[in-house]
Amino acid sequence: MKKNIYYFILILVTITTVSSCKKDTETPASTEETLSFHLHRNVGTADGIYDSLYQTASGRKFNITDYRFYISNIVLIKGDGSLYPLTGKVILAGPSAMEYELQKVPVGNYKGFTFMMGLDSITNHSDPTTFGAGSPLAVQTPSIHWDWNSGYIFFKVEGKVDTTAAANGSADFDYLYHIGMDDLKRTIDFSTNAFSVVSGSPHELHIEFDLLEALSNVDMRTENMTHTMDNFPLATKIADNWQAAWSAE
């Protein structure tokens, strides 16, 4: 038995030696650096904060109680024009964070990037119960999945709005924009927003989304409800505004 202990120590020593050897050979040459989105969910020029009061361009008061959307299929365009997809990365932009770490990417110059607002059809129809609780696609994420057509809500904005004709009342009428379904995913183009990733300094891509722009041609007094399938024209109108609602900060 005593001998066994010696052997055990011997093993430990061996393992330690081997792993320290490994360490030596892996001195970082750092050809990759962390890339993140610094992302603002704005209402006009202000941050979108739940229960704050905002105004549409025409002066109509409204608040927001939910303001979240999915970003996926992020593709970087390298300096030589080749594409560098960040496969599998999904972000649910919401009130808890502005920083969304993407992954380590090769250092160098990039011509720009694109991403999908919404989810590709395979991800959209995957089983939400199979994702870990920390995943933005997990069934634990509150109220962002439909089970009647088994898909995710790509863009979810809710709150209350003043629906008086003269827009001089208070924001007390429920409005609801739930945009989903494969047809309404949209590719957002930042392909001319060049950036460089340099070794030793994590890079942030500063982007912002303006809800007022996304609702620019929507009359919140009358057009105040869509679950997509029950008001597809309104859902399409909003999805078609997404590109214009994005800008680089």
Partner: peptide, 20 residues
């Protein structure tokens, strides 16, 4: 599953009536 076929598996179908 469902009359309109909107749900793809018996497993996921379970969520339908619970959430409706």
């Amino acid at each position: 599953l469902f009359w309109d076929g909107g749900n793809p598996t018996v497993e996921q179908q379970v969520l339908g009536p619970i959430g409706n």
